[in-house]
Design a protein around this nucleic acid. Structure first.
Lengths: 180, 180
DNA sequence: GACTTAGGTATCAAGTTGCAACTGAAAACT
DNA sequence: AGTTTTCAGTTGCAACTTGATACCTAAGTC
């Protein structure tokens, strides 16, 4: 299991998690992301779907726009309307969201069947799990992981940052598209 | 109004996300999970690693224990000490946490190198991305997904809940272990 | 011009967070 | 034995955040 690396505190902070939580750690952020992914685009829709207070929704939407997760676009036909649309950065949060969703389903008390269901657009079958992959694409379970100080990495791993996809590309959390 | 899937609100709520957020949506939960995975086990350690207030830490640890994410065990050698250890349920949150971490790294402003690095225990190479998989194991990108009402699923997909691993097992977010 | 809709502010009560000081019990030192 | 230190909390209180409700403003509709 996790061996004690734990260097003074700076090490622990050299991690993307705090940055991610700064935006998504707030109470409604993930719910808004989900609704957004689910086809909700307008203020009053979020309001009635989520049952959130107006001021909080307003605040959260601004924050998400500010952080580049949503785009705020004025409708040219009806200029009262504002559309909130997920950016690429927003879509990139999907693995995290889906993983949380599956975890909640696995351990939650609610009914076993989710609805709506996320499907693979190619064959419209429900998607499988969200998985951590090794550098070569093998699926890793929690027990297969370890944390090591960067300096203790083997030679070949030194220039391969965590999150590099099997293909050898550069992007993190941006697996090559299965459908193109 | 709503032309998309979006049925009245019940549908949107039939989702594990709210359940997951009830525990992990609070400000420090993921940071505690990370520290825990990183080998931090004791109250005073969390305190100094995270820079969290004592009362909040106390409160969060209780909550995580209550929800079965951490186990609270008295040290028999030194009975002042209490050890907090991740449960299986806690380990199952790793894909979500790692995914957030990678997202934060990709878009964050902080330095590009993470430390410590999560490695595959088998070859000690940094892990790859966290990916959403199709029912047959293909890697899916955000653009490959769609949400459909459960009743609109094709026949074969009806009894295959979202999150079912390629192998055909039952567990969600519990990929078959790569290292036995 | 009156009315409705969309997307927000303003106000204020209730809850949450965080600092600092205190407690209490178990170990360690003298 | 008596004092001090360490560990894991609890308590009290100020600052901040959240949430319900009411109000506001601009744009569309009749």
């Amino acid at each position: 299991m996790g061996t004690d690396v734990r260097e003074p505190l700076m090490e622990l902070s050299a991690c993307g998690l705090p940055a991610a939580l700064e935006v998504m750690g707030e109470r409604w952020s993930f719910m808004i992301l989900r609704a957004s992914f689910n086809g909700v685009h307008h203020f009053e829709e979020f309001l009635s779907e989520l049952g959130i207070a107006r001021n909080i929704l307003s605040n959260r939407l601004s924050r998400l726009v500010e952080h580049g997760i949503l785009d705020r676009v004025q409708d040219e036909q009806d200029r009262r309307r504002v559309e909130y649309a997920l950016t690429e950065k927003g879509f990139d949060l999907l693995p995290a969201m889906v993983s949380l969703r599956h975890w909640g389903l696995k351990y939650g008390t609610e009914g076993v069947g989710m609805d709506p269901v996320i499907v693979d657009d190619r064959d419209r079958m429900p998607i499988g799990p969200v998985a951590m992959l090794a550098h070569d694409g093998r699926i890793l379970g929690p027990a297969d992981l370890n944390m090591v100080a960067r300096k203790d990495l083997p030679e070949e791993g030194r220039d391969r940052p965590e999150g590099t996809p099997p293909g050898g590309g550069v992007a993190i959390d941006e697996p090559r598209e299965a459908a193109e």
